[in-house]
Computed example of a mutant assay.
Amino acid sequence: MERIDITPDLTFSRLVYGMWRLGDDADTSDKHIRAKLDACLSQGITTMDHADIYGGYTVEGLFGRVLKATPSLRDQIEIVTKCDILVPAGRHSAARLKYYDTSAAHITASLETSLKELGTDHVDLLLIHRPDPFMDPDETGPALDALVASGKVRAVGVSNFRPWDFSLLQSSMENNLSANQIELSLACTDPFTNGDLAYLQERMIVPMAWSPLGGGGLMDGSKPALAAALKRIADEQGIDEAAVAVAWLLAHPARILPVLGTNNLSRIARIGEAAKVEIDRQTWFELYTLAIGKEVP
């Protein structure tokens, strides 16, 4: 599978497996989680996307049990995790409400907990999960730099940041922010025209796309013409409609990394099909036109 440079000495698989729903599966046994991991690795999908908050702060621990049982797996994967969202659940059950914390103390403590839960001495990419309206960039930026210097984090980035949020944080940092994970799909096309994607392209920053299938909404019939086009292209190329929707993102020159989070083992085994789909310029615009519901200007 194609790999994308995150930093000069760190690459990610072009398709990323997301752990958001791992704790929602009926089967969270080590055996079942290992089967998902093996299904990814067999296709060259080596990058695993986490966040401390996933599963009410439980998912990192579930995945970590598998890594602790077979430590050699750590050398075969890259781990992404995120911090700064606090909700009244799990280890933060004492919180009075949902809020964000980008203080140096919280970022550092959150990473230490993630390392313990995951059973590793470092993560490959740490992301600030959501823009914090109370963020002090002169505290947050140096805190991220310090974690890179410590070797506990190989690279840092953000998630859901608008260009101005990104620039503010970057202005207080020595290390480059290496990625921005944003919502991006045929169901969420605004970043293609509102400047979010252009900002990342201009700076050669890796865009990671969460919910690349629109939470499953692309095939639910709410946009019948788009669903029909996806099915037609899928039938022509002998693959699944979901693979076509993901391939639409892969075809874009911004080097987008879709983050896919299905719990279904048979679907996980087919994620790699997206890399085989051919999407030419007119087909890309056909799907885009159907997604936005009108002809381009």
Rank of each mutant, 00 (worst) to 15 (best):
I107A: 03
L22N: 09
L127D: 02
E78Y: 07
L10C: 12
L287T: 04
P131Q: 11
K276C: 11
E295T: 15
D38H: 05
M1A: 13
R154Y: 08
I233M: 01
T193F: 14
I45S: 02
R130M: 10
N160A: 14
I33Q: 11
V206I: 11
L230I: 04
A274W: 05
V123M: 06
A291R: 11
V277D: 09
K68N: 07
K36N: 12
S114C: 10
P191M: 07
Y54F: 13
A89L: 08
V296D: 02
F12E: 02
G214Y: 03
A243H: 04
K31M: 08
L126F: 13
F166N: 13
D9A: 11
L67T: 04
V296A: 13
V206E: 02
S114G: 06
G261P: 00
T81R: 12
G217F: 10
T113Q: 12
T120F: 12
G64T: 02
L41M: 09
G217N: 12
G23P: 08
L265F: 05
I53V: 15
D235P: 03
T102V: 00
A228H: 08
E112L: 09
M219S: 07
A179V: 11
V87K: 14
A187W: 06
I256V: 15
Q201R: 15
D196P: 05
A243S: 14
E295I: 15
P297H: 05
R91V: 03
Q76D: 13
K98T: 15
G157R: 01
Y57A: 00
D124E: 12
A269Q: 08
M219K: 02
C40A: 08
S150Q: 09
D165I: 03
Y199G: 03
A209C: 10
H122M: 04
L62Y: 14
A179I: 04
P133M: 03
V123H: 05
T11P: 06
S171R: 08
D30F: 06
L73K: 04
V16S: 09
P212M: 12
T58G: 00
L144G: 04
P131F: 05
W248F: 09
